[in-house]
């Protein structure tokens, strides 16, 4: 279990998911699963966000948008690919318009399994992302000193 002093804010983008993972991500924010207890707030602005949660695979039209969102986020940042579609394209991998998982366009730090990913799995993924975020944060600090 990681412990991160800051309040990491979260940006959710729906790649080309079927909504199954999306609504589970939202379910994580609501009372039963309550991801906000880690100090997380769902924000709509990439400039405010530390964690990028992406559901669904990359297609022709959203590749640039995902790249843009990622570039707009300030460092340090982590990317969590939620669900099998975000990992590899999943059941849609053979469709003509799917390029594949999120890692085709941006680096991914944590992969969350499932179709649709269960809220418990998403929470686990985010917690894992927090420890990676902390690592990145300390490295950045050290680099600044050096």
């Amino acid at each position: 279990m990681s412990y991160f002093k800051k309040s990491p804010w979260l940006l959710h983008y729906d790649g080309s998911s079927c909504n199954g993972c999306d609504i589970e991500v939202l379910a994580c924010l609501t009372p039963l699963y309550d991801i906000e207890r880690f100090g997380i707030i769902n924000t709509g602005n990439p400039k405010h966000a530390d964690i990028l949660l992406i559901t669904g695979g990359v297609n022709e039209q959203n590749a640039d948008i995902i790249k843009n969102l990622y570039d707009q986020m300030p460092d340090p940042k982590v990317v969590v690919a939620v669900g099998i579609c975000a990992t590899s394209g999943g059941v849609f991998a053979e469709c003509y318009n799917i390029l594949g998982g999120i890692d085709k366009v941006i680096p991914v730090d944590v992969y969350v399994m499932g179709c649709a990913a269960r809220p418990e799995a998403i929470i686990d993924g985010v917690v894992k992302a927090l420890s990676i975020l902390e690592e990145k944060y300390t490295t950045m600090k050290q680099e600044k000193v050096a």
């Binding site: 729906d14 080309s16 079927c18 297609n59 318009n97």
Partner: peptide
């Protein structure tokens, strides 16, 4: 979000396609 899942009927048997049809929307 256009994936083109309707074309998967040519790649999946009709009994298997139920799984794809369910994933039109979660």
């Amino acid at each position: 979000i256009h994936r083109g899942l309707e074309i998967l009927v040519q790649k999946r048997e009709f009994t298997e396609y139920v799984y794809v049809a369910e994933r039109i929307c979660g």
